[in-house]
Design a protein around this nucleic acid. Structure first.
Length: 350
DNA sequence: AAAACGGGGCC
DNA sequence: GGCCCAGTTTT
């Protein structure tokens, strides 16, 4: 038996029942695929269900506001995915008259849809023969064929892309694509794959060469940087001062509090901190330390301090992105995880 | 070619 | 603490 037959038979016997697999609607597939980018199935699943319930069609999606989309996206991360989806939904309404494209060449032009997602949507919705290449496929192929070219290098992407496309020829594209990804997710896992009962054990180069734990090879790149954010929690007449994050930075278009970033952990009397506060408020203000948190992102370690400003804020120079809102309004705004945590603990302690 | 972009689970 | 997850976009 060849590689493809073993993979697809394994899939028939072992696959999970995932809701998006029940549909060939390109809109539904699109929804699931964007949500699942760099995201585990278990984490994305509830988001998929909520989005589909809220927006059954691309027309419904296109009619939403960005805040609405980001609020539903809250907690999932990589928020540009949500913003790009809204852009693309509107594009589909205007350019394709509300009919979601199924052809790879049309899909690849849409914002937020890259090579992987275009292959996934086109193969699942219309049976176009485009091999998906995601983390699972890289891993399965590099192990089975014993390829040690780094999967995140240009040469690696090219090599694996050619190989995977050659393997899908003659197969049912939708089934084969699902099968190889599911095989990578459940059987050929990154850590402690179950080689003892693997149906591909016979032809597996990594197994034969005892290289399973060394493949795939990946170039490490990410430099983690450390940041210090000092949040200013301003309350007045039951309203909270919120800030819309409009800069090119993490959490773009989400809402948090006005804050001052310092180059190091800052105490209220710190010169750098104080001068920024002076600039922001036009006079000295008194801070009351509330809480400290450490927030971990893939490439940032953020030390967060929350301070209360109980008064002194009458002269606050309001930027366009800063606004007073009620607790109720704040709750309806999309916000970073760290802020949700803070708000919860304030509610518990009050 | 490299960096930026979240949050969570697992070892 | 490091790695990885149904990747894409920007620099």
């Amino acid at each position: 038996m060849n590689f493809q037959i073993i993979i697809t038979s394994w899939y028939q016997a072992n696959h999970r029942n995932l809701p998006w697999r029940a549909s060939t609607d390109p809109y539904v597939i699109w929804l699931s695929e964007i949500i699942l980018q760099q995201t585990r199935v278990e984490q994305g699943l509830p988001y998929f269900n909520r989005f589909l319930a809220a927006f059954p069609t691309v027309r419904d999606f296109a009619g939403a506001s960005e805040t609405e989309i980001l609020k539903l996206w809250q907690g999932l991360g990589y928020y540009s995915r949500g913003r790009n989806m809204l852009y693309t939904a509107r594009e589909v309404m205007e350019l394709h008259e509300g009919v979601f494209p199924v052809a790879y060449d049309a899909l690849i032009r849409l914002k937020g849809i890259g090579a992987y997602t275009a292959a996934a949507i086109s193969s699942f919705s219309s049976g176009e023969s485009r091999a998906v290449l995601d983390g699972n496929v890289f891993r399965v192929l590099s192990r089975y064929f014993g390829i040690d070219i780094p999967i995140n290098s240009t040469a690696g992407k090219s090599t694996f892309s050619t190989l995977s496309q050659s393997l899908i020829e003659g197969q049912d594209p939708a089934v084969y694509n699902q099968a190889i990804m599911e095989f990578g997710a459940l059987q050929c896992k990154p850590k402690s794959p179950n080689c003892a009962v693997c149906p591909l054990q016979d032809g597996c180069a990594a197994y034969a060469g005892n290289l399973v734990n060394h493949l795939p090879v990946k170039l490490k790149t990410v430099k983690v940087k450390t940041r210090y954010l000092n949040y200013l929690f301003c309350l007045k007449d039951g309203q909270v001062l919120v800030n819309k994050r409009i800069k090119e930075d993490i959490w773009q278009h989400l809402y948090d509090f006005p804050h001052i970033e310092t180059s190091h952990a800052a105490e209220p009397g710190d010169p750098e901190f104080s001068s920024s506060l002076q600039e922001m408020f036009g006079k000295d203000v008194v801070l009351r330390p509330l809480m400290e948190m450490k927030h971990l992102l893939t490439h940032q370690i953020i030390y967060v301090k929350f301070f209360a400003l109980d008064n002194y804020i009458t002269n606050f120079s309001m930027d366009a992105e800063v606004n007073w809102v009620s607790w109720q309004e704040l709750d309806e705004l999309p916000q970073p995880k760290i802020l949700t945590k803070f708000i919860q603990s304030v509610n518990i302690n009050s």
